[in-house]
Amino acid sequence: MPEKRTYPNRLGLNGWVFGGRWGVERYLFILHRLTGLGLITYLLMHIVVTASRALGAEWWDRSIGAVTGPIFTFGEFLVVAGFAFHAANGLRLVLIEMGWLTGKAEEPIYPYKTSLNVQRPFMIVMMALAAVLIVMGGVDIFAAH
């Protein structure tokens, strides 16, 4: 078996959280990871808690009662906010991955047009959409409690 070539990750955790002088997309990347990790942590717990519905009303009320209160309400808001951002930014990433938001290759004539600039208007629209969804989620969740 050929030896696997590895490259040392010299920045370690700092490389994950510090975008330096890179553009706003680099910080969206960090936030995408953080929200993703938060959402998967929530999903793992959510599956266990909501499995109680298979056992009937009494078990359901008991398990939901265990995760009710102001802290959990705030947590619910964080889940909605995290999903709104992760989904909006994720859609942008998928479209970039497919090559639909990067623009066509062209000769580099000054002033240069980069693929980052091509996708930026869509990024602004997606972030605005995420912000609207986060506000809507906040109004719905906190007004209901």
């Binding site: 989620g137 719905d140 969740i141």
Partner: peptide
């Protein structure tokens, strides 16, 4: 359905 049901 779960979190935006009132507003939507």
């Amino acid at each position: 359905i779960m979190h935006l049901n009132d507003i939507l």
